[in-house]
Design a binder for these strands. Structure first.
Length: 341
DNA sequence: AAGTCAGGCAACCGCCTCCCT
DNA sequence: TAGGGAGGCGGTTGCCTGACT
């Protein structure tokens, strides 16, 4: 037995909307609003359409202040930056581009922007364009491999890959990462395309970083986070506590750092930089966020904001890409998480 | 002029989350 | 607290249009 359909599929019209249908829908919503019930709306106005279809039509086409047409360079930058940080979270990306819809951005990315970037990157392979576009994790994805693809205008790009420097961190017994089977990008970057890192997360997002005594539990991904402030400064501000917050709240908090200060990374200096947080260190010049985090005992990897499955994590372990002194803890964490589920 | 192909984009599908009862 | 329904979202489809042969 499947899920009940949201409408009578046999009696609804599909396909492109006619001007008459548009007019009916627009007129009704202008006068009465949606009434909080899309499913009931088509009946009220005599449209043979699915409620979801009405909603989509309104959101993507009819509602006021929708912007159609060419994307600006600035919009390109924002999309790229956010995509590099949070992946294909189109609705969140759309939230940062007034007048653009998630569908628009998704289409634009899939048909144009992706190609544009790949071409540009190909042409500039010696000094890759920012941001680097990462592929989806292949079956044998290894952080190491991804790390090699990371780059940064002001970062030592290999600093946190499997270099001697990183190995040194590991050999000194730096702390265990807390890991959950699902790593999800939560922390966006500011306008610096490849800035950013992300917190490791328990599956239900009940904790990301608790600075008080647990800052070592931060696992950092991302391109070389950096001195992103436009005034050149990089100020440490690590206060992040996300206890009891839902994923959406956390997303929101990170996207809009003007809310609770305790949930924001921000250098607190330049207004522009307040938008998407991230600066964490005064270590000007390279990989500041990562180095600061590592120096604080975090397990750090260069890499990219992708989601890793438990299988992929296990693979990392099995291929010794993680420090050996973390393995047992690592496995315990995974087991605990599985048990919890 | 007709046929073919590829790109762009609106719309659909189905899954997931949230909220209400 | 559990279940059901509506909304939200990302992936995908398929139609339309314009370029090319």
């Amino acid at each position: 037995m499947g899920r009940a359909p949201c409408c009578d599929k046999a009696n609804v019209k599909k396909g492109p909307w006619s001007p008459e249908e548009d007019a009916k829908l627009k007129e009704y919503i202008d006068k009465h609003g949606t009434g909080g019930n899309w499913i009931a709306l088509p009946n009220k106005i005599g449209l043979k359409r699915c409620g979801k279809s009405c909603r989509l039509r309104w959101l993507n086409y009819l509602r006021p202040n929708i912007k159609h047409g060419e994307f600006s360079d600035n919009e390109d930058r924002i999309i790229c930056s956010l995509f590099a940080s949070i992946g294909s979270r189109w609705s969140i990306i759309a939230g940062q581009l007034p007048g653009r819809t998630d569908n628009d951005i998704k289409n634009y990315w899939n048909t144009k922007l992706k190609k544009k970037l790949m071409m540009h990157q190909h042409q500039n392979s010696a000094s890759p364009l920012q941001p680097t576009i990462y592929p989806s994790p292949p079956d044998n994805s290894l952080l190491h491999n991804y790390s090699l693809m990371a780059s940064s205008p002001c970062g030592n790009t290999s600093y946190f890959t499997n270099t001697p420097a990183r190995a040194n961190y590991c050999s000194r017994g730096f702390h265990q990462p807390i890991l959950s089977p699902t790593f999800t990008t939560l922390i966006s970057s500011n306008s610096g395309a490849n800035d950013g890192f992300l917190g490791p997360v328990h599956g239900d997002y009940d904790q990301i970083i608790n600075r008080d005594g647990k800052s070592s539990n931060l696992l950092i991904f991302g391109g070389e986070a950096s001195c992103s402030s436009s005034d050149g400064s990089c100020t440490t501000n690590h206060q992040i506590t996300t206890h009891g917050r839902s994923k959406d709240q956390v997303d929101h908090d990170y996207m809009f750092p003007s809310c609770d200060q305790n949930l924001c990374f921000s250098n607190g200096v330049d207004e522009d930089d307040q938008k998407f947080l991230i600066t964490t260190s005064t270590d000007h010049g390279y990989s500041s966020s990562l180095s600061a985090a590592a120096a604080a005992g975090n397990e750090c990897f260069g890499g990219n904001p992708l989601d890793y499955s438990i299988e992929e994590i296990k693979q990392l372990i099995s291929t010794n890409k993680m420090c050996s002194n973390n393995l047992n803890y690592f496995m315990d964490e995974i087991q605990t998480e599985e048990d919890r589920r």
